[in-house]
Computed example of a mutant assay.
Amino acid sequence: MEVLSSRLIVRPRDRERSLRFYRDVLGLAIAREFPGGTVFFLGQGFLEICGLGGPGPSPDQVLWLQVRDVRTEFERLRDQGVTVLVEPTRQPWGLDEGWVADPDGLRIALVEIPADHPLRLDTREL
């Protein structure tokens, strides 16, 4: 399979409330709008908010967002009243991770990759 593009589709209980959260609170840029839906840029992917959802997301569904400075983002989001689930901490796998929730309870992992983490090191021999 050759994948040309991808996106996560979220069906919120209140579309306008979720649009305000992703656009105004998280500050995601809009890639495309269409009747009944909005697509946001997510780095190398997309997030689509459309339709109407049921009582809430599964706890197995998670949005993972890599950010430059996780602690700064947490301060900003906390100041805007975002629900903080877990404060940022260094995980055993070496990433700095914290968790927040969107208005419907979708868990969002905010992750910073430290400068000395293997994901940021050039392991090629010179």
Rank of each mutant, 00 (worst) to 15 (best):
R20G: 01
G45R: 12
D96H: 07
V86E: 15
L28G: 01
V70H: 05
G43R: 03
L42K: 03
E112N: 05
D69M: 05
L26A: 05
L121T: 04
A29P: 04
E73A: 12
G56D: 09
T123N: 10
A101H: 05
E112G: 07
V10N: 03
E33V: 11
D102Q: 13
A115H: 15
G36P: 02
S6C: 06
I9T: 13
G81Q: 15
E125W: 13
L77T: 06
A109L: 06
P57I: 07
A31R: 14
H117S: 09
F40Q: 02
E33M: 04
P114I: 06
L119A: 13
A29K: 14
G54W: 06
E112W: 03
P88N: 00
R107Y: 04
F40C: 02
E125P: 09
P88W: 00
I9E: 13
D79S: 15
V111G: 02
V82I: 13
R20E: 08
I108K: 01
G81L: 15
G43M: 05
L126W: 14
V70L: 04
D96N: 09
Q80F: 13
L52S: 06
V111P: 01
V39C: 10
D96A: 02
F40I: 01
R76E: 10
G94I: 13
L110S: 03
S5F: 08
H117D: 14
I9R: 11
I49K: 02
Q80V: 09
R107K: 12
F41I: 04
E75T: 09
C50E: 12
G45W: 10
A31D: 15
L106F: 09
F40T: 00
L121K: 14
F21G: 06
V67Y: 12
V25I: 15
I9M: 14
S5P: 01
Q66A: 07
D104Y: 09
G54F: 08
R20P: 01
H117T: 10
E16C: 00
G37R: 10
R107F: 03
D24G: 03
S6L: 04
L106A: 05
S6P: 00
G56I: 02
